[in-house]
Design a protein around this nucleic acid. Structure first.
Length: 279
DNA sequence: ACTGGCTCCTGAGGGC
DNA sequence: TGCCCTCAGGAGCCAG
């Protein structure tokens, strides 16, 4: 399940292999993704100018438009020689000049592909991207911002942080981890988290995402990096998937619950209602 | 304006 | 060994 670090790792890898290459053909082998895939006839023949990212969307900048790709839950991209055999669930194949192919592989088909015509910068106007909040590494994302957006909100702070209109790129794993490191209880209504709590939270979100990006992304079951090698954990996860086990800090048994339908784990001792551990 | 629940889908994992 | 059941999860959508 690609989280922001996996998407960023994929972006770097694919960009290094395909930037400045001309796309010769696109083979849509399965169009039933999250939304039906419809790509324009004008796409083949264009040169890939660069690869950007907004939230977990990858933005392939072509000469006359932008291809907007989301990996969904189980999606991955690989760059392979044209003659390499296709795998089951290789849904879209992009044939680039020089015999390289980009393959979008997505067993669960929660991923998506859209085309936004026009100058590359116009991709931000696409409806998928229009209402996204700031990137975690945007200077505008800080405790003051979070506190201002949280005023009056009764939704659990964990779900608040996972709302892409508030801040993008904070998936379930990192929401759990950041809340643990900040000492904030996930179920606390967003409006009741203190300004100090949000100051620490903003920093911890950047910390856990940044560390994972630096290491090339943590990985769970489905992630395959762009070279086709299985991913692996490098970052120690303190709470995610550890319900019932001992807190690494205090030894207390970690508790699991569901918030907004998502698996949530926290330490009852380290994560007090209002408080936060020293940064 | 918010909120919580639903939806898409396949493969992994547990129980027997 | 194999079958069946449950469930996970990003994020848009929608009803209340």
């Amino acid at each position: 399940m690609p989280e922001l670090p996996e998407v960023e790792t994929t972006r770097k890898g694919v960009a290094s292999l395909l930037t400045s290459r001309r796309l010769e053909a696109v083979d849509v082998r399965e169009s039933r993704l999250r939304w039906p895939v419809t790509l324009p006839a004008e796409l083949p023949g264009q040169v890939l100018l660069g690869l950007d990212r907004r939230a977990k969307y990858l933005l392939f900048r072509f000469q006359r438009g932008t291809l907007i790709l989301h990996l969904g839950m189980s999606g991955s991209l690989r760059v392979l020689p044209a003659e390499a055999p296709y795998l089951k669930h290789d849904h879209v194949i992009f044939h680039f000049e020089g015999g390289r192919t980009l393959r979008f592989h997505d067993p669960r088909r929660f991923g998506s592909l859209h085309w936004q015509a026009g100058e590359p910068v116009a991709a931000g106007e696409h409806w998928l991207l229009a209402h996204l909040g700031p990137e975690p590494f945007d200077p505008a994302f800080d405790g003051r911002y979070l506190k201002s957006r949280a005023r009056g909100r009764r939704v659990a702070v964990k779900n608040f942080l996972m709302d892409s209109r508030i801040v993008v790129g904070v998936g379930n794993i990192y929401a759990n981890e950041a809340l643990f490191l900040a000492g904030v209880r996930p179920s606390l209504p967003a409006g009741r988290v203190s300004r100090a709590g949000y100051d620490v939270l903003a920093g911890k979100i950047r910390e856990v995402l940044g560390a994972a990006i630096d290491m090339g992304g943590t990985t769970l079951r489905d992630f395959v990096n762009q070279d086709g090698n299985p991913g692996y954990f490098k970052q120690v996860l303190n709470v995610y998937d550890r319900a019932g086990q001992a807190c690494r800090v205090c030894g207390e048994t970690l508790k699991g619950l569901r918030l907004g339908g998502r698996a949530t784990v926290f330490c009852p001792k380290c994560q007090k209602a209002q408080g936060f551990r020293r940064a």
